[in-house]
Design a protein around this nucleic acid. Structure first.
Lengths: 363, 363
DNA sequence: CTGAAAGCGCTTACAG
DNA sequence: CTGAAAGCGCTTACAG
């Protein structure tokens, strides 16, 4: 044996529903009623049972409940790589909410490109019978995954899906609105030549963030110079490349809005390397509030996604808990589509332009 | 109903062991033998059963197996905040290995300072009855957690514990040796005035990394100037503060070894802000290979922990799989204490000193 | 090499 | 308000 099991067991066998029933002088059915908070038990009977449960440190067996009943008290979280930071926060929110509600979170990392993805999902669902599944991008838009889940009848909620589906609830933030807000910060500071670096073309957030940028610029009647809108892919290197391109321009931008923090970090690094002072010579904003965004100098102004709150809400949707009232900024476009509030995080990478806008920099 | 379950179920009820037995014309015991790979089944009988299982898409129920038998096919992973990146990688390694072995990973985030931590752990273990538990720092050194697990007789493996215990297997890297190696890189480059920034005093890795630094310096007969060894706490700000202190010195260091990447990032930011060229004026090395370490310019030279491999090994230890032979660098100090190989990652924050060492910088 | 019986710890569907 | 019986889908301990 390679495990501590071989050391002398200190605990006696765990108490079962039978032990509790015997001690409390009732039937197991009554014990069952008490632990499931069912009505129809006399208060003093309930109290007695509860007391015995505590004394015996009784914990119902997940397996037995699951096998006999309709619930497994298991929630599944499926993810594929994306940013470790994102998944990590989704998971933390989900695991906390699960514990509060007496559920447990089973986490499975999947390969979005696996040929047998549908089969993998089917296997997980049919052996574990989770009471619900939470999907994060890009899996929440993968047709094989969605089909397997739909076919098995497993309740599923999508976190930040590219496309909403009427048959599956979703939780997301408002990318368009958030991008508008952070653009307005720049405009309000006095910037007029603002560059925009796009996200990866295959990710839904990219188009939404660009829409928000465009909307804010138009509303403020600020011209969007075509040479200041550059393709990116959410990676650091794309930010570096975009910056090289932007700084070659005769008419340079005074501010850059990168569609995520990793690219904003690339802009910061490349600009500083060319001797620009940030934010004086160039203001920079990112998106995500990734851990790295505050591990540089100056720390990045960015947009915080309500990641943990989205995860908690996802769990609530699955287990039927009414969403905590008073959750700030929660909107409901339909019964099942939740939009949570984002938060602008202003740090030190933004300031008013020091050179007058619309003037070419001295060569 | 708030879930897709209300939509017409597409799948018919899942096949059970009885369905398979009937179709294959054998008893359920034989089906059980086949799915558990037990000996004593005629090859053609086994083939027939296997074929029916496939045809019926049979998946054994985790609950039923767990309730009837001694195994739950569940592995628990307990963590408390630490770096999201670290936990995220541990988890990814664990979940992959679990899937390969037919297990599932249940992740629980705990509050290391909760007053009822032991109780929380006890509850999880007694309701889920996982076949094993994996603990990461700081939980793997928390006496309440360890006691609850020991008392319940749950096999447990510690990942990177501060103190090894003879009753629990552990998996870790060799911090001392790794720190020696990265110090030697600096020495080999020609640095003689090397600063060292300590990690948090309450974390085991801190002392080990300092030991490695000292060992390498002594072996190379390079003096360790007391004013170049500075307290830190693993956070970005500590790196910034240490740098301010170091750059005030009449006799500045030509290189800095920060005990982790976050602090190294602080050194980088502060040094650049004061106009130093990295690595020319100051070489910098970190430790961890965190995601942010390559999201700055210049990207950091650092030490990669074999995090995923540690997690996979932890699972193997729990389920009794022999560790894959040929795993590079695996050492075994006792039957249960595994030490995995680290990897030096040389990037652009290191180079030979441009100013001659041991000379004060021109003021 | 194969199987019949009992039982794991709960919930379901009824009965009173 | 309470309980006796059956059964969920497997494994265990035997028997042959």
């Amino acid at each position: 044996m390679t495990t501590p099991r071989s050391s002398p067991p200190v605990a006696s066998a765990a108490a079962t529903i039978n032990d509790v029933a015997k001690q409390a002088g009732v039937s197991i059915k009554t014990v069952s009623r008490v632990m499931n908070n069912e009505p129809g038990v006399r208060p003093d009977t309930r109290a007695k049972v509860l007391q015995v449960m505590t004394a015996l440190r009784y914990r119902p067996s997940q397996s037995a409940r699951s096998l006999a009943g309709a619930r497994s008290f298991l929630i599944g979280l499926l993810y594929f790589d994306p940013s470790a930071a994102f998944v990590s926060r989704v998971q933390q929110g989900a695991t906390m909410r699960c514990r509060e509600a007496g559920y447990h979170l089973v986490v499975e990392s999947m390969d979005n490109d696996a040929h047998d993805l549908g089969e993998q999902v089917h296997r997980m669902v049919s052996t574990l019978r989770p009471d619900g599944m939470i999907l994060t991008p890009p899996l929440c838009d993968n047709p094989h995954v969605l089909k397997a889940l739909h076919d098995s009848g497993t309740p599923t909620v999508l976190v930040s899906p590219a496309r909403q589906r009427k048959d599956m609830p979703s939780v997301r933030m408002d990318d368009v609105h958030a991008a508008e807000e952070i653009t307005n910060l720049l405009i309000g500071l006095g910037h007029r030549r603002i560059a925009f670096i796009r996200g990866a073309a295959d990710q839904a957030a990219s188009a939404l963030r660009e829409q928000g940028f465009v909307k804010a610029m138009k509303a403020a009647r600020v011209e969007i110079a075509p040479e200041l809108v550059i393709d990116g892919d959410f990676r650091f290197e794309a930010g570096v490349a975009a910056t090289h391109q932007l700084l070659k321009l005769r008419h340079r931008p005074t501010a850059v809005f990168a569609s995520n923090d990793d690219m904003a970090l690339g802009v910061l690094a490349a600009a500083q390397r060319q001797g620009l002072a940030i934010p004086g010579d160039l203001a920079i904003v990112g998106f995500d509030d990734s851990p790295a965004s505050s591990l540089v100098w100056p720390p990045l102004t960015t947009m915080r996604q309500p990641t943990m709150a989205m995860a908690r809400t996802a769990v609530d949707l699955l287990i039927g808990t009414p969403t905590v009232e008073g959750t700030p900024g929660t909107r409901t476009s339909s019964a099942m589509q939740r939009v949570l509030a984002h938060e602008l995080v202003v740090r030190d990478s933004t300031a008013a332009p020091t050179r007058p806008a619309r003037r070419a920099p001295h060569a």
